[in-house]
Every structure is written in structure tokens, then in C-alpha cells.
Amino acid sequence: MPESGTGLDVRGMIAKKRKSASIRTVVEKLVPRILFGIAAISVLTTIGILLTLLTETVIFFERVPFLDFFTGTKLKPLGEEAVFGVLPLLTGTLLSSAIAMVVAIPIGLMTAIFLSEYASEKLRRTLKPLLEILAGIPTIVYGFFAFTFVTPLLRSFIPGLEPTNILSPGIVMGIMIIPMVASLSEDAMSAVPNAMREGALALGATKLEVTLKVVVPAAISGIIASFVLGISRAIGETMIVAIASGSSKNFTFDVTQSMQTMTAYIVEVTGGEAAAGTTLYYSLYAVAMTLFVFTLVMNLVAQYISRKFREEY
């Protein structure tokens, strides 16, 4: 031990400094690893979803042939002679989404045009938050609205309409999607530089002509992406159809009839507490897998469109 000549314990101070520095180095090294672990959880969630769906779906297809499932027009999951054909659910899903988009695309796009091109700044600032309220209402409330208000209202016009049908939830779903289409399209249109509008106006175009021939074509990638995301949202929407479209597994294209969508089937089967190990239980995963693939493809298409066809200004 070397002797310390002065009153100051310099060596001690150096040792202390080294120690705190080394703790700091350890912390500095540890933190990014911990954070990486946390960030990995979102990836694990995706893997978890894929794995659970895949493993159970494989078992389902061991019992029910792949082709029978995707070409079967009959779905009768209960009873002795259960038949699993997904087409009734697919038509239900596609019909309700189509009806929703017939409502959401024109109204959403026209709303976006009004907000981006015609409304004054002040009007825009009052209207946008109100539309956001529409977007923030839980879907169960829309389901209640479809079931207790829209269906009875439609029944007074359309005599053949069943108490549960695919038309009313389709329309209400469209109303729910309007704010989404409107806000995404408006973002795309607002990104079109004013110089382009002014150029067209200077050539003598009216505002409508500027909108339809300059702004909309320039923003078309964002607008189409908003439509595709809207469709994806409609396909995945659950509570509105679970309440208002009924549970009959009809294979039909008649929108006045009660039909079931893929999402509503999942809710019905899990709500009935399907015993693990039954084919009914595994059918849940096959339907969920189909639904997952549909929405994933839609989302990827939307991302592709907005990336590929974006015009940079």
C-alpha cells in the first residue's frame, strides 16, 4: 500500500470516479438492450397472432378439406352432420363492406373536397373536430343505432326487410368510415401545392374544374389508399354486424336477408364457449385466419399504392 502524503485522498477519488463511471457504462450498455426487448414485443405480438392462427388452422384443415372450406356454400357448424363452407360468411362480409363503401366513398370524398377546397379556414376548424367525434364513437354504439333506429326506419320503406339484415349494418358501417376516408383524403389533397391550383385558376378554370382536374388527380394515390384502408376497416368491423345482421348463415346476395360475416361468426362461436378440440372450435381459427389475410392484404395494398404512386412536389 503506497502511503498518501497529503490530506486529499486522490486515489480514493479516482477509484470512486471510476466506479461511478463503470456503473454508468453498464447502464449505457444495458438500456438499449432492455429497450430492444420492449420494442421486440410488438414483433412478438404479430408472430403470436400468426402462430396461434396457423397452428389451429392446420388442425382444422386436417379435418375439413381445404377446397370444401373455400368452395362450400353451406355452413352448419352445429349438430351431427356439421358442414363447414366459408362462402356464406365471405358473401356476408363482402356485401356489408360493399354497402359500407357505397356510402363512405362518395360522402367521404365529397366531405374531403369541401373541407380542403371550399371551406374557409374558420369553418374547417369547426367542422373537423365534429367529424372526429363521429370517428371516436365506439362501434358498439353504432351497432345499437343500426339495430334500434336504422333497421326500423328502413323497414318502413322496404317492406321485405328482415329485422336483422345486412343492409342496415352496411349503411351504418359506411357512416362510421366516412370520417376516416374524409380525413385521409383531405390530408392528401392539402398536400397538393397551392401553385398548382393558382396556375389552373389563372387559366380561367372554375373552382370545381381545379378540384376535379388538378387537385384530385394530383392527390389520387392518397385518396385511393384511404378507400382501401376503409375497405379493410369494414371487413374487420365486428360489433355493428354482430348486433344488427343476425346469425343465419345464408348463402345469398339478397341484402334484405339476415346474414353473418366472418367477424360476427367469431363472436357467436366464442360467445357460445366452443369446447376446445371440437371442429367448431378450430373453425374459429380458420375463419379468423381468412379474415386476417384479407385485412393484411388490403393494408399492404394501401401502403403500396400510397408509396408507389405518390407524386412528390
Partner: peptide
Amino acid sequence: GFIQTNISNLAGVPSVVFGILGLTVFAR
């Protein structure tokens, strides 16, 4: 880029599918 894409895809997964994940992993 990978994690970011994964998160935006996760945001597009229907909530009912998350229910299936919860049922299978957490509940069962």
C-alpha cells in the same frame, strides 16, 4: 424500418383477431 412496418400492420389487424390471440394465449 422493420419494427415500424410491423407496428403499422399491427394497427390494421381487426380487434376481433386480437381477441382470438387473448383467448388462446392469455385466457387458455
